[in-house]
């Protein structure tokens, strides 16, 4: 690892993004807009006294899911471009270490992810008056972590696509099952055993479970810590797998 090279990679990726204001806009604004949609969906519901609004429950989960989806897409396409344009092969003939490259990428997109999470969480709290028991800081942290998870999975999946068209098709394969099984539609403990087992293997489930912990308890719980650790573990494992797909020598 060479921090200078990692930082150079991070700033290079951010500079590339800077030249593309439309993408920045999409990254920062789209989750907030989707959140607004969810808010209006449940605007007229009647809530029994003492129960949380559906928006507080669903909107909160969205704060963990949107960043994951957006960053997965952005990263897989960007990294695929790097692979197909020949710049990756070129970089791998230079002294840069694979980890510098991958962590540089992960860092750059994580910075974007943090900004995105702040915008989305801020919108949820200040515009739509989201009320949960726990601290908003934990919500932001989980959002950032799921975004980084999306980055890591995007880096990995780009290795299995040869065109941008294929890269986009990984969305239904990698992302949608996680959204279906993460507990957003049906609580995980009410699923049949096979689905519950499967959902236990998927990282997004832990993000949603963590968000539910934050919603239910004013202070951070042991379960929340466990969920955060599992997500972080997934990120590291996926990044290591992604680094294995960067080969200096090919046929």
């Amino acid at each position: 690892m060479n921090l200078g090279m990692m930082w150079a990679t991070c700033t290079r990726v951010l500079r590339q993004l800077k030249g593309d204001p439309r993408s920045i806009g999409m990254i920062l604004v789209v989750p907030a807009i989707l959140l607004a949609l969810v808010y209006w969906l449940y605007e007229n519901e009647t809530v029994a006294p003492g129960l949380p609004r559906t928006f507080d429950r669903v909107g909160l989960m969205m704060l963990g899911i949107f960043p994951f989806v957006v960053m997965f897409l952005v990263t897989s396409i960007t990294m695929l471009r790097e692979r197909t344009s020949g710049t990756l092969e070129r970089l791998l003939t230079t002294p840069i270490h694979k980890a510098d490259l991958l962590f540089g990428y992960a860092l750059a997109f994580s910075i974007m992810a943090a900004l995105q999470a702040l915008v989305a969480t801020g919108t949820a709290y200040w515009v739509f008056g989201m009320k949960i028991a726990g601290n908003a800081g934990w919500v932001v942290l989980i959002s950032v972590l799921t975004a980084v998870l999306g980055v890591a999975l995007g880096l990995l999946c780009s290795a299995f696509a040869t065109t941008e068209f294929q890269a986009v098709q990984f969305m239904p394969v990698v992302v949608i099952p996680q959204i279906l099984l993460c507990g957003l539609f049906v609580a995980r403990d009410q699923m049949n055993a096979a689905l519950e087992g499967l959902s236990n293997l998927l990282p997004l489930s832990y993000a949603v479970s963590g968000l539910q912990e934050v919603a239910a308890h004013p202070d951070p719980t042991r379960d929340l810590g466990g969920d955060l650790l599992v997500i972080a573990g997934f990120v590291v494992v996926v990044l290591v797998l992604a680094s294995l797909t960067l080969r200096r020598q090919t046929r």
């Binding site: 060479n2 200078g4 090279m5 150079a8 990679t9 290079r12 500079r15 590339q16 030249g19 593309d20 344009s85 020949g86 710049t87 092969e89 070129r90 970089l91 003939t93 230079t94 002294p95 840069i96 510098d100």
Partner: peptide
């Protein structure tokens, strides 16, 4: 010590010329 210029131009099209060269300078230290 070995520089390689591939047949396809392999630089970042969405970066300025200077930023491209600076990045490759940085990865060479």
């Amino acid at each position: 010590d070995v520089g390689y210029v591939t047949q396809e131009v392999s630089v970042y099209r969405d970066l300025s010329v200077l930023d491209n060269v600076r990045y490759f300078s940085a990865v060479h230290g």
